[in-house]
Design a protein around this nucleic acid. Structure first.
Lengths: 117, 117
DNA sequence: TATGGATATGCACAACTCGACATATCGATA
DNA sequence: TATCGATATGTCGAGTTGTGCATATCCATA
């Protein structure tokens, strides 16, 4: 038996929309915050700008909140920054994700490790 | 803001094979145990027999263990039952999954609920 | 020994996702 | 006011995944 590793994926859904926010969108917000633009954020995550832009749009529509303030124009072309709500979501989801990460590690040790190695 | 629900997905991977065991295969084992056949199990899960059979094969190959004992023939056509290892995995993963389910619920309450409603 | 329902497996097709392109637009600053 | 880099958005093609269908095989029991 090869060594196993537990992985997980988290997301939030409403009754009719699956995945209004989740790991991917969370990483996107983080990257936007640290890079200051959607373009650079998508590059740092190695996803297409097209997808990053679409994901962000979906999240904002589904949550009905503006997460990122985007500006076009200027010599620098434009930039993006998190709104107050964007920061709020980033912070909350970071805690959420981190708690589950720890829980997965612990549960793996408790239930799986002994039968997997 | 619509009411949100936290969802998650768990799985186990080796260094080179992603998803050697996970939620889907776990549900499959459960269904095989309760129905006694792969055909009925796939029907109860509403997935094609083709997929159920393939998933099971993949899991067994990746774990290098036999999880289900399958028999062909007879008036009843055949049947499937979990092996000792299959039961072991079912039990272990059930505990694993259940712990994470609780953790997700708790972490949602702690981090997300207050900003989502 | 004929039967019937289950296992076993290949293959073509549909659905979905994502990436790659192609454009259009914007507007602060040099 | 010309520029330049970023946002905004549609579209087509490739890869992935699961379904549907077809077929072959198996064998305990009636």
């Amino acid at each position: 038996m090869k060594k196993l590793k537990a992985k997980f994926k988290l997301w939030l859904s409403t009754r009719d929309i699956e995945g209004v926010f989740g790991d991917g969108k969370w990483r996107l917000l983080k990257a936007i915050e640290s890079t200051g633009s959607l373009t650079q954020a998508s590059e740092s995550l190695r996803i297409s700008y097209r997808k990053a832009w679409g994901d962000l749009k979906k999240a904002q529509e589904a949550l009905n909140e503006s997460l990122v303030e985007k500006h076009r124009g200027g010599t620098r072309g434009g930039q993006s920054a998190l709104t107050k709500q964007g920061k709020k979501w980033l912070k909350a989801y970071t805690g959420f994700h981190s708690d589950i990460e720890k829980a997965v590690e612990k549960a793996y040790e408790k239930h799986i490790r002994k039968i997997a190695e």
